Computed example of a mutant assay.
Amino acid sequence: MGQPFLERRDATPLRARKLDLAAHAAWLYYIAGNTQEEIATKLNVSRQAAQRLVALAVSEKLIKFRLDHPLSECIALAESLRDRFDLSLCEVVPTDAGSGDTLYGIGVCAATHLEAYLMAKTPTILALSSGRTLRTMVEQIPSMNQPQHKIVSIIGNMSHSGRAGRHEVVMHLSDRVGSQAYPVPTPVVATSVEERELLQTQRSFLTVKTLAEQAKVTFVGISHIAWNAPLHQDGFINDDEVAELIELGAVGEIAGWAYSDRGVLLQEGTNSRVASVALEQPAHRLIIGVAGTVRKSEAILAALHGKLITGLITDEAAAQAILSKI
């Protein structure tokens, strides 16, 4: 994202708002892939006006390869969240009012931060969990050759029955950038406490755990706890286990670790058998939550309350929902 748009001495409120609209139109066109007719409908302007707004964004150099103009509404939401939860980093992307799906927009925004770390010449350890949003983030990263970095997972990618997850991230990223990959060699949830303890004494797991604890930054997905939520839908927990978590008051999970509406990690349920790298609470390192939509707002808010994350990349709708609850 670029510099604040009120840079010019002759910028009037009307012109500032016009630049806001131009930036919004450009985001819908270049990022969300909307047609000019769709943009006109969403911004409540004529098709010709929508075309002129996109042209204005280009002529004002708001567009490079990514949108280079911060939308004032999103910036205000990001600053409110940053101040309220003392975040090291906070980004809010516009919500596509038509589809409500901001997965791509969040992924593009998160990718700009991830790419900055990957471009470093100094060997760096980067840690990630898994999930659709992080997978979308990784898909925006261009191919490069950075063998000096270590890409570390904090969560396994299979159920205790051996079924693989569909949204693995670490191997996918390492293939794109040529870095060393360190996946977690365990299922997300073990079948028993004894099995989990045994798995976590393996040298391969201890190596990954040590690296994850040294990571310069960790990108994590955040999900809600519900029937057919990702942890359940992907087969990492079964029907009885998700029902138990709901009964215990779980509202969200990060890397398989379930937590309450105040962000407190549960001591019961599947948490006693989660074989992922343990979450730090409160987090003292840079842990960036990458998640959006109103549906996940309660889980994101709880993670913020519990200080499970110290950075956040989300969408406008989720940010508004979070701030309305506090």
Rank of each mutant, 00 (worst) to 15 (best):
G2Y: 07
Q3V: 13
P4F: 01
F5Q: 11
L14V: 13
L14Q: 14
L21K: 12
A32V: 15
N34K: 13
N34F: 07
T35M: 01
Q36F: 15
I39D: 02
L43G: 10
R47L: 11
Q48V: 10
A49K: 13
A49H: 12
A57K: 11
V58S: 11
S59V: 08
E60P: 09
K61E: 10
L62R: 15
H69G: 14
L71I: 15
C74G: 09
A78S: 13
E79Y: 11
D83S: 05
V92L: 13
T102N: 07
T102P: 01
G107T: 09
G107L: 06
A110Q: 04
L126S: 01
S130M: 12
S130E: 10
T133P: 06
L134H: 09
R135P: 06
T136W: 02
M137T: 05
V138Y: 01
E139D: 03
N145I: 04
I151E: 02
V152L: 03
N157H: 07
S159H: 00
H160L: 13
G162K: 02
V169R: 01
D175I: 07
G178Q: 02
G178Y: 05
Y182H: 04
P187S: 07
V188I: 15
E194V: 14
E195Q: 15
L199C: 10
L199Y: 05
R203Q: 12
R203I: 12
F205D: 06
L206V: 09
T218R: 00
G221I: 00
A226F: 11
L231F: 08
G235W: 00
E244M: 04
E247Q: 10
G256T: 08
D261A: 12
D261V: 09
E268L: 14
T270I: 14
A278N: 13
V290G: 02
T293L: 08
V294D: 05
Q320M: 04
A321W: 00
A321Q: 06
I322G: 06
